[in-house]
Nucleic acid binder design. Structure first.
Ligand code: FES
Ligand code: FES
Lengths: 156, 156
DNA sequence: CCGTAAAAAGACAAAATACTCCTTAATCTA
DNA sequence: TAGATTAAGGAGTATTTTGTCTTTTTACGG
């Protein structure tokens, strides 16, 4: 995709989220090949492969090799919250680190921005914890929302 | 500083914020040399110079060359909000871009996460808009809070 | 006017992130 | 068992961010 300045989530994380939503939307127990996902979502196949490996390593997805192989979610979409995916790919830094980059937020003496940042951080955490893949799929299907740049994506 | 994973703000932005808070804390109208700031805050002098240039370009600071030169804030600390500094250095991307990296958030057809993200984004914006440099200085002085890694910093 | 101190500007180096390509291992089908 | 298909693994490239270094410009102080 490229040309993205500074965002909340890394590109890898965004790809992981979109792939997870996609898998939750097809929702039968069959494996879907990463090639298929990358084509549907217009993401580099090789890069997506690496990203999804992190999700299989973290037991959010499971994979099978060979013909008819691919990846699938280990649990139904309403049992997977966004925070799990973000944590698996980007780590928890955004929810634990000091806004001024000082080491040991929460344990060491705070910085002047700590109180405000802690509150804001909680809002982010809450959003990522309360939103499930199922929520996004339901909303996406109901409003025929966009999951790719061009919006040519068709919900299952 | 190094080794920072994925954060809300870039390193450059964090340095700019810390330098701004420092300048607001000394608060007389004299210029402070960037060398002095970099030593007080333990930030690379050359890198900080480049960061502060963005702030002078955006009329948040003004500078003077030569002996007795340096930088200072253009306005008192209670008239400068954090958002100005963040916008000058990192841009407004974090407050305008789609959480899933799709182009045209707000104008184009939304993505499934848009509603939640828009709310969270507003919280971030509100925090950055309501907090002034003066707020941080007051809090920092009152609690002798930390502005450097080691916490050896002394408020004026 | 001269020397010095400081920011500005620009070239360069290192590290992290984003992305590509090739090989290997596993699994299915015939 | 052989061939095809697909994920996994690893090496390599490109771009951005971070950081360093050197030179130039501007202002002060004598
Ligand atoms: S110490 Fe800075 S945000 Fe917690
Ligand atoms: S379109 Fe994705 S957050 Fe607005």
């Amino acid at each position: 995709m490229l040309f993205v300045d500074f965002m909340l989530l890394s590109s890898a994380c965004v790809y992981g989220l979109r792939a997870s939503v996609y898998l939750a939307s097809v929702s039968d127990d069959s494996y879907v090949s990463i090639t298929k996902i990358s084509e549907e979502l217009d993401i580099s196949r090789h890069f997506l492969t690496k990203v999804l490996q992190k999700l299989t390593d973290n037991d959010i997805m499971e994979s099978m090799k060979g013909p008819k192989g691919g990846v699938r979610l280990t649990r139904p979409g309403d049992e997977i919250v966004l925070l799990e995916i973000v944590a698996a790919i980007d780590g928890m830094d955004i929810l634990t680190e000091c806004a001024l980059g000082l080491p040991g937020c929460g344990t060491a003496k705070p910085c002047p921005i700590h109180d405000q940042w802690a509150d804001t951080r909680d809002e982010i955490r809450q959003m990522l914890t309360e939103t499930t893949l199922r929520n996004l799929v339901d909303r996406g299907k109901a409003g025929n929302l966009r999951l790719t740049e061009e919006g040519e994506f068709k919900w299952a």
